[in-house]
Amino acid sequence: MIYVMCLALFVVGLYGICCKKNLIKIILGFIIMDYAVNLFIILIGYRKNGIAPILDKTMDVNKFALSSVDPMPQAIVLTAIVIGLAVTALMVAVCVRIYERYGTFDITKIRKLKG
């Protein structure tokens, strides 16, 4: 069920990118899509009633391995979020500059390059 929600989120993001005309909305769509994937990755490692994957000195390793969630997706997601942040920041920066040059956020009017 939750995977379906995740997929729905992804599709919402895609819709935003493809069908919206406003640059800001496209960026928002992009962020939504990015987060849908991040959510998906986190869900992969999820375990019901699992504990945080931090090995304490007091814990038994085998018991820990049985009860903790998978730490790998979390590491991945952290990186992915940072990358997503970089892309978003760059997008917003370019978007601001585009507004300076074109005076519009409408993507269908930003079409000097064609043919």
Binding site: I17, C18, C19, K21, I26, I107, T108, I110, R111, K112, L113, K114, G115
Partner: peptide
């Protein structure tokens, strides 16, 4: 062919899909 390259991002994305 050139007529189809309108410069509109949405069209290009449609092609991708």
């Amino acid at each position: 062919l050139r007529y189809f390259h309108t410069g509109v991002l949405s069209n290009y994305l449609t092609w991708i899909f």
